[in-house]
Design a protein around this nucleic acid. Sequence first.
RNA 1: GGCCCCAUCGUCUAGAGGCCUAGGACACCGGCUUUUCACGCCGGCAACGCGGGUUCGAAUCCCGCUGGGGUCACCA
Length: 490
Amino acid sequence: MTDTTALRVRFAPSPTGDLHVGGARTALFNYLLARRTGGIFILRIEDTDAARNVPGADERIMRDLRWLGIAWDEGAGVGGPHGPYYQTQRLDLYRSAVERLLASGKAYYAFETPEELEAMRARAAACRASLRYPRPARFPDESDVRRARQAGRPVVVRFTAPDEPVTVRDEVMGEVTVAAEELDDFIILKADGMPTYHLANVVDDGAMGVNLVMRGQEFLGQTPRHIALQQALGLPTPRYAHLPLILDMQGRKLSKRDGDVEVHAFRRAGYLPEALVNFIALLGWSPGGGREKMTPAEMVELFSLERIGRTNAKFDREKLLAFNTDALAAADESRLAAAFDDWLGVADNPLTRAGVPAALRPALLRANRGMRTFGDIAQRCGFLFINDDELTLDPDAVAAVLTRDDNAGFRMLQEVLPALESLTEWTAEAIDAQLKSFCAARGVGLGKVAQPLRVAVTGTTVSPAISDTLALLDRERTLNRIRRALAARV
RNA sequence: GGCCCCAUCGUCUAGAGGCCUAGGACACCGGCUUUUCACGCCGGCAACGCGGGUUCGAAUCCCGCUGGGGUCACCA
């Protein structure tokens, strides 16, 4: 194919909820292909289902795409020469398409109620067949429409499906032919005057010059309808590339049941967008050669339609977690700081509720190297955001570390307290040195001292390295907490 | 159920007839490191769904079976 015109691709979500990882991958692949080929990536909002639209969902989807680093050249939020990019603002276009179809006998009015259609479907199902709408010998005319309206019946427009088989040449799935009998006279204009997805999608792709449609495989079966519509409307048929699906670990269509699947949920949990993007890029695509870790720029460089697979992929959170751990470890200081700030702005946990002073952030990040998500910081450092007199010691931790062996832990606390009190330079390094010399002098392992201290100042057995834990907490609060623990000893 | 798509370790995948005693990553198991949890390091386990062909030779090509998924809306 030696097409010299630039590729025009699009991502066309309906604003019915947050962007989930499946949609994010579709958007990503379209974006990568556009960047790779010097094409244009369009974002169009398909909001023709008034009942399902969620106010603000469009903005949230855009917010999530931006966070992922997926930028669009034309579309909602940025404008462009083919706008507006919200389908509810393009209704005239669909109506005139319907008019043309009606005028040329390629579409006709129908008046059944949902209940009647349901009954027809039930009858068809009884004969173990799916319903094909019975096309009338004579198409209703305007006077029939008037009568139907007066009778309070719904008025829809149906497309006259072709009586020839339709072949989709899909660039991922190959050639797929659907027999004419499989095509039925589907609705293109709903009773509320809104176009259905099929019509609006085809009309807009035509109007926006979209010449390659890349979307989820669940649409493959609909594509013959779209091609038939394009032909009836005199529109060119774009290239198609249907992506394999992303399933949950049970092998079912990804849903909320399997845990959070929204991009925003991962942002709030403390994932890095580059890790998420890298991970979802590998669901259904592979650069080959065992290559996995890539920067966005490398993905653009390596991406190609030919390397998209055909088998559905399961969404493995464990592997994503591993990617995030690695990305966090690989991020340089400024990147990490920026991502942490971002996370503090969107997450909701004891840390963010307390408000983390900017001055404390670098130390927090340093003390938590090896974390898997930013969420780990909240788990490991919550003790910093509790008042000394409100800190409660976990009974299990006390039993295991302080009272056990005839209060060995408490006694150790008693002994190490003076060593800490005498320390004036309160840095992790100084604390570390002091604790080590204390241990060396007594001939005990650091663990024997660290755990009692950890329980006394955090109330738990888990926190950053003991020197970091104490340094983070500050001298006065550390000593105060040790004294309180000792005083509380029965 | 009709139609369509798919089929390599538990998972994501590499593999485009001999390079495969099938490679990598995650998970898992074992060990090391260690001040807790993580992190890190080393090692190990683990797959071509089944049956027929084609071929000197098949994970790679063809057919059937089985299994999985999608779709059959006035949702997209």
